[in-house]
Design a protein around this nucleic acid. Structure first.
Lengths: 278, 278
DNA sequence: CCAAATTTGGAATATCTATTCCATCCCTGG
DNA sequence: CCAGGGATGGAATAGATATTCCAAATTTGG
């Protein structure tokens, strides 16, 4: 009984713990169980709502093999493993459909309805962000800004919130940063010196000031990383890298959830790399 | 066979269609089936991962009653109804866990990994926001700010992004708004006149300046609406309403997704109400 | 290349879940 | 107040689904 594939401790207590254990097992699993592991990694979301037979078929193995796989992970069987996924699912799943329909009934368009709508839009924006994100481009953008002497940030109107949060994070991580407010400040350009870099944020319809500042920086050989809500952004010409974060609107309004998320990830990545190279 | 409670067309083809039909049935259902309907409306997310017995128990009825309820909705039985929910679930669900574990494998902690982590945290923050949101309190907060002559906004450090976006939205909707930057500006207080209101944002650890400004405003009888990430916020004493938006962290960092979403909903609600009363 | 140990497939079984059925109860209309 | 029709609870049944078992196949170590 002690010579089984892998009988550690008890069963995992959460999905991420389970994934860790899966990584730990590495390639040490026999062929069929390996198939199960591979399939599970790519289809985590199916576990809560499928039968062993379905999952086994998906992984291309017999149900009994999948059972053995569950046991190798430390569970008593499939049911115990599924219970874990179901618990996690019921904990985190938003019931927007329900909530919105409820709110729609009694006097629509109140603040609560708006909050639910914006929250739902936020979910969609984040999903779309991760689906469309180009990891390689993001890495290059982070590299450009990591190597800069001082990072200059610019973004007006709705983009200013993004820039100000990024400025806060970078400053907290002791990365030399300047936030540009172009209004009536002609000296902006001269603050950018060779070796610096510019991070420019602008959403359609674009602020002329931001576009021009980015263009002048690009012309002077200062690398520009741009963030916009469309690939058609005019900055695509002057920018070394253009990142795109689309947002889902609620009527005429939106929350820049995806952009803020992407900008934060970028800032933290920059802060992390700088720290390492100090 | 034709005299059953309600046998229309076929089974609903989607969850929202089902909700519509539920609304259509209105109060015409007998007591026990009504309990099922009520429970379903509030626990849509449970259907995909529960048994009839569980749901029936939750609704306080016998399994057989729940079966009749499913049939009244046009399904052949519970299984058919559950299949609908399971299908929608597998469609919508993003596989962050999977994505993260994939990214973890090859060179962890890159910008892409960070983006995925922050996106996942954003999802969780939004779910928790909507689970904990008190509609009544939000409505009162919106009312306080709607009735104000000028809305004063204050928030420093990480809270400034929230305030600046809210300021942008309110300004766009032609609501008189002032953003206070307390640094070295002593006249802040006098800008707030009777009839105005203050919206103060501060997250732990709180900025002393924000707390003091809010306290002085409260003492002068100017209504204060506060937004924080904890109910333990010191402003709870001076504020007319305290809104709470908790965020899920990634390591030492976070994206203020929930707070920004809530603040946006609030701003749009205010803008909408003002428009109506003009 | 052989023997031992491990893994595998598939069928048999145990368990759990959905579904039906019917005696009883409760309303409703006369 | 008394039928009569629908609604209800609970048990009985049919159907899935998980789980185990073991003979056959495969791999591993010497």
């Amino acid at each position: 009984m002690a010579s089984m594939v892998n009988v550690q401790a008890g069963a995992p207590g959460s999905v991420s713990e389970l994934l860790d254990r899966l990584d730990g097992l590495g390639g040490s699993l026999p062929k069929r169980l390996g198939q199960c592991a591979e399939f599970l990694r790519h289809n985590i979301h199916l576990v809560a709502v499928s039968t062993v037979a379905d999952l086994a078929a998906g992984a291309g193995v017999q149900p009994s093999a999948f059972m053995r796989f569950c046991q190798a992970l430390g569970f008593s069987g499939f049911s115990e493993m599924q219970a874990l996924f179901r618990a996690e699912y019921t904990q985190f799943r938003p019931d927007y459909e329900e909530r919105l329909s409820q709110l729609r009934e009694r006097g629509s368009q109140g603040p609560e309805w708006l909050a639910a709508s914006f929250a739902e839009a936020g979910h969609k924006s984040l999903v779309s962000l991760m689906n469309s994100l180009d990891g390689e481009r993001l890495r290059r953008a982070a590299a450009v800004l990591t190597e800069a002497g001082t990072i200059h940030l610019v973004g007006l109107r709705r983009a200013f919130a993004i820039v100000s949060y990024m400025g806060y994070l970078l400053d907290k991580m002791r990365v030399p940063t300047v936030i540009h407010r172009t209004a009536g400040q002609i000296e902006s350009d001269h603050a950018m010196r060779p070796g610096d870099a510019l991070f420019a944020v602008s959403f359609a319809p674009f602020s002329q000031e931001t576009l021009e500042l980015a263009a002048r920086a690009g012309a002077r050989g200062i690398p520009v990383v741009a963030l916009s809500d469309t690939a058609d952004c005019p900055m695509r010409d002057c920018a070394r890298e253009l990142l795109v974060a689309r947002e889902v609107d609620v009527g005429a309004f939106r929350v820049p959830t995806a952009a803020l998320t992407l900008a934060t990830a970028l800032a933290v990545a920059i802060g992390g790399s700088r720290e390492n190279s100090d």
